[in-house]
Simulated assay, not measured.
Amino acid sequence: MAGHRRTYPSPPQPANRHLQAPKTNCNPVKLASILTYIQASRVAHNIKDLEKHLPSVASINGMQVKDYIQALSDDSKIRVEKIGSGNWYWSFPSEEKQQVEKILAEAQATHARAEAVLADLQAKVLAAHEQQQADAEEEDEGGESREALTESKGKLMSGLGGLRKELSGYGDADLTVLEVKRKEIGKFKQETETYTDSILNMEAWMVDVGGDEFMCGKRRELYGDQLDEESCMLKEV
C-alpha cells in the first residue's frame, strides 16, 4: 500500500541492564558516599529505592545510579542477590573488619619474628662481651696476645653486623603501627556488636522473603565450613 512504512521490532534489551559494565567514569568520593549510605541503612535495597535516594546522597544523575552500583559490586564493596523477582543490594562492614584482623595478625607474627631475632642478637652480644672479659683476664695472666684478641673481636663484630642487617628486615614490625592496628580492632569489635543485630534482622527478612531453605542455602554459601549443618547456623567459636 502506498505510503505504508514497514516497522521492525526493536532488538531485545538485556533483562538486567544494571549488571552490564559501568558506562560512567565513577567518582571515588561519590562511590564512598554511596557505600556509606548503604552500610548505614543496615537494610537491603532494590534498584528503584536506590534510584530514588542516591542522586541526593552522592550528587549524581539518576541515570548514573546503576553504573555506580555496578562499580561497587565489581569491587566487592556491596553484595547483590536475586531474591524473588528482583535484585537486592546491601553491605556490612564485618568483612572489612576481618581484613583488618588479618593484617594485624600478620603484623604481630612479623613482630614476634623480629623479637626472636633481637633476643638472639642480644644473647650473642652478651656472650661476646663475656668472652672479651675472659680473654682480657687470660691476657693479664699471660694468655693470648692482643693481636689474637683483636682478630677474634673482628670476627664477632662481623657476625654482629650480619645479625643487625637481618633484624632491619623486620622494620615493618613497628610498635606504633601495631598499636594503631590494635585500636582499629577495638573499634571494629564495638561496631561488630551493632552490625550483628543488623545481620540477624537481615536473615529474618530473607527468611520471610525466600523461606528457611533459601536462608539455609545462603548461610552455606557465605559461611562455608564454618556452618553447623545440623542447626544450619554459624558454628560457635
Rank of each mutant, 00 (worst) to 15 (best):
P9E: 15
P11Y: 10
Q13D: 06
P14R: 07
N16H: 11
R17E: 13
L19T: 02
A21D: 02
T24Q: 12
N27R: 11
K30I: 04
S33Y: 11
T36S: 15
I38F: 07
S41G: 14
D49P: 01
L50I: 09
E51L: 06
V57C: 09
N61Q: 15
G62T: 05
M63L: 12
V65T: 03
K66P: 07
L72P: 00
S73I: 01
D74Y: 06
D74Q: 10
S76H: 07
V80I: 08
S85N: 05
N87K: 09
F92D: 08
S94C: 13
T110S: 02
A114K: 03
V117C: 08
A119Q: 09
D120G: 12
Q131W: 10
Q133K: 14
A134Q: 06
D135K: 03
E138Y: 01
E138N: 02
D140K: 01
E141G: 01
E147N: 03
E151D: 06
E151K: 00
S152H: 04
G154Q: 13
G154N: 10
K155D: 13
L160K: 00
L160R: 00
G161W: 14
G161D: 15
R164I: 13
R164T: 11
R164P: 08
S168E: 12
G169Q: 07
G169P: 00
K183A: 13
I185L: 10
I185E: 03
G186I: 04
G186R: 07
G186A: 10
E191G: 12
T194A: 14
Y195E: 08
N201D: 15
D208P: 05
D212P: 06
C216T: 04
G217A: 08
R219N: 05
R220Y: 06
R220K: 15
L222P: 05
G224H: 06
G224S: 02
D225E: 07
Q226T: 05
E229C: 03
M233A: 02
